[in-house]
């Protein structure tokens, strides 16, 4: 297996190191000061997209790639379900799911534009150059390795946390890929 490691490795301990408190009266989620930050990538319309342009929105941020058959579609479906549950409660307006691909070669803006609307969750798809995506991955402590496969196929070994960002763009919580949908809904609502 040939691997390529370009993104910086931020240990899980660092990922889970928390400091400070939020200023949301309804939330007791601490602010993670080790991860996150603003970035600019290319959205599914081919336009530059800056995270901070989502000012005053709670963001559910996650990484993956559309050729991944098992984990990524399941995560997308769970995020979408959380969003729809919020929508049913009238709380989806200030919430924005954002998907960042590891695979800009195959996940072009055009492909993301066709792929993501199926989940019916107003998901913004982001891509960019490999270097740009690696830089964002490093900000968020995400590691991904491209692995060559058979028959011109390739996959990625990757971490698969989902990030909850508050209205100031600060990381407030990380979830595993099999997160509890109600937990995310409740956490999002605590930040609104």
């Amino acid at each position: 297996m040939k691997t390529r490691i370009r993104s910086g490795v931020v240990l899980l301990l660092a990922a889970l190191t928390l400091a400070g408190c939020g200023d949301d009266p309804g939330s007791d989620l601490p602010v993670n000061t080790r991860l996150g930050g603003d970035f600019t990538l290319t959205d599914h319309n081919g336009e530059p997209f800056r995270l901070s342009s989502l000012e005053d929105r709670v963001v559910i941020l996650f990484f993956g790639y559309t050729h991944c058959p098992d984990i990524c579609p399941a995560v997308l479906a769970r995020v979408a379900q959380a969003y729809r549950n919020l929508d049913e409660q009238g709380d989806a307006g200030p919430v924005q799911p954002v998907f960042i691909t590891f695979d800009p070669e195959r996940d072009t803006p055009a492909h993301l534009r066709e792929y993501l609307p199926w989940f019916k969750a107003d998901i913004i798809g982001l891509t960019g150059s490999v270097a740009e995506i690696e830089a964002v991955a490093e900000q968020y402590g995400v590691v991904f390795l491209k692995t060559d496969g058979q028959d011109e196929a390739y996959d990625f070994t990757h971490s698969d946390y989902i990030y909850l960002l508050d209205r100031q763009g600060r990381v407030r919580k990380l979830y595993p890929a099999d997160f509890d949908i109600d937990e995310v809904v409740n956490d999002v609502q605590s930040l609104l």
Binding site: V143, L145, T147, Q150, D155, T157, H158, D160
Partner: peptide, 18 residues
């Protein structure tokens, strides 16, 4: 069609094994 296994390493990384 291929048989795959999604495995999680001690480092928390998820990888797909053929």
């Amino acid at each position: 069609a291929m048989l795959h296994d999604s495995r999680t390493g001690e480092d928390g990384q998820r990888r797909m094994v053929h």
